[in-house]
Design a protein around this nucleic acid. Sequence first.
DNA 1: TTGTAGGCGTTATCAA
DNA 2: TTGATAACGCCTACAA
Lengths: 349, 349
Amino acid sequence: MDSKPKRVMAKKKVNIKDVAAKAGVHPSTVSRVLNPDTASMVSRPVAERVTSIASEMGYKRSPMASGLRTGRSYTVGVLIPDLTNPIFPPIVRGIERSLGERGYIAILADSDNNKKDEHAILDSMKSRHVDGLILATAHRKDLAVNTCIDEQIPLVLVNRSIDSHAVTEVINDDEKGISLAIEHLLELGHRSIAYLGGPPDTSTGRDRHQAFKKIMRAHGLEPDPELIVNCAAFTEPEGHLGFLSLLKKHRHFSAVVAANDLLALGCFDALQESELRCPQDISVTGFNDTPFMDRLSPPLTTVQIPLDEMGAKAAQLLLNLIRDPQIDSETIKLKPKLVVRGSTAKPRT
Amino acid sequence: MDSKPKRVMAKKKVNIKDVAAKAGVHPSTVSRVLNPDTASMVSRPVAERVTSIASEMGYKRSPMASGLRTGRSYTVGVLIPDLTNPIFPPIVRGIERSLGERGYIAILADSDNNKKDEHAILDSMKSRHVDGLILATAHRKDLAVNTCIDEQIPLVLVNRSIDSHAVTEVINDDEKGISLAIEHLLELGHRSIAYLGGPPDTSTGRDRHQAFKKIMRAHGLEPDPELIVNCAAFTEPEGHLGFLSLLKKHRHFSAVVAANDLLALGCFDALQESELRCPQDISVTGFNDTPFMDRLSPPLTTVQIPLDEMGAKAAQLLLNLIRDPQIDSETIKLKPKLVVRGSTAKPRT
DNA sequence: TTGTAGGCGTTATCAA
DNA sequence: TTGATAACGCCTACAA
């Protein structure tokens, strides 16, 4: 009469009380046993019995309940500007692997490059009590990032940094990357090298641009402003437009350093349209080495970035930060390398 | 004296009690106002006042607390076999967009094609009280899926189905896709067409294989078992091996239908190695139309699948299922279309 | 070393 | 229509 009929065998969720009852101890004891930080407080035999009974009963701690009590969720928010941009899947993968190893899980969202959505998403994540945040969306001056700093929520930036560097960041060594590209072209004999950059309000846009000028000068070549174009976005159409505007200036350059692979693709489009051949007429280098760049026609010479590692490292730093929020912020720069393929060759004599 | 000094202005989280106090009502009233299902129970003027005060104070309901009470988390688990496989980012994006519109959020995990990890991840998601699950990892007979069914957790499968079709599934119409590829090749004049398939323990592997045989017969061509090879995985190396094994049989086929784009890429590798040209010597078709397939050399003729839509639809069905678990399961098949590019041409005469 | 009691923020249920 | 109360499952001072 007091056993309600269930449709299926409804394995009732076992909670901490059930375990305590079966083990003949108080729920708080069970709690202590199962919590690594407090496990030492309880005697060896009791601890062992509780542990074995708990696993035997299939007990799982309820993160919601414990989170409500402790303010922790063992959950991390990951915000990406656009998951279909091929640099992000490897980063996300690295993040997840690293997080999973320590019992954390990722809430993933895609801001679609939209600042308004971004705030809404961050609010939603915060209201879910994420223990920390990994953002790949940062601009050089970024309100959302500053808000998180004010709120003292553990935070790590990947791929892009902010000007103040007031946060932990895991980024690429862009100066090194650009120098690899330029030096490769110089070795091939190029002297008139154009630069197709990204949006100046992102660190990757700005840093690569600065690096281009700096490295050129270091090699005794004064960069010609007419041979530098910064695109409004890191996309193929923008690269296309940017390259056309370079061409329009009627300059005789023999090579282009593009600030990412998609911009380089845009160059390919524009070259074809202009009946120029790559690499015979103009050499092109990319940046990132996203998937399939080795299969283009011609295969793209590009700067390879350890994306997986970038994600993994970011997750790791975030977990440290969650453990100890007092840790100083640092900017980690990963080393890129050059992958030489078919889109670069000696210039026409 | 009773105001503790805080390092920074610590915007104390405002909770339902604060709102109630300021509005001069009981917390339950606030709860009712803010909950769409119960909002009708409260009088218009009170509701309006509460609403405005709540938003003015920046009140956000705590999903953890409300989840603890209601058993809901407004969170959905999404399990993907490998995020770096280019078909998944668009699917995930579709899922997230659809989820976000209804206040849900996705916990994403990557099983890395590993059944053991998969179980651990699912446990972790369940312990976080996800309200439902979207799985892209299903095999035709899938223990993990069956477990979820037993546990009566709302569940939707994407991209792949299970043999019993006992669950809601959003998949591609593979028979249609394969028929588009075959008919295109037939129109070009091919008669001897090989098939390079995927693992038979996945629905996509099996269905496309069956479809190949069926459609060939429907056109009066008995499929030659020697011209059919099923690969162990949907990967480029497997496609490479598979194609070589087709070649080894010394059959004179003029075209290959590959069961996905990565297998088709493997064909390209093997063709090059064998000094055969595509499409002059052998035409190749792919499946999925993942990014950059239009930029290969030659650009790949392939079957295009609405991946975004697949994800969005799955999320939508899952939310319906969460709302009403009694809804019957259904299998939704999305219509693919053929994208003709440079990897297919008339056979040599 | 273990038990007790109170509360994290909400909402379901019952009473008014 | 609104208010009071208890409970969701867990953790943590504090007491024993």
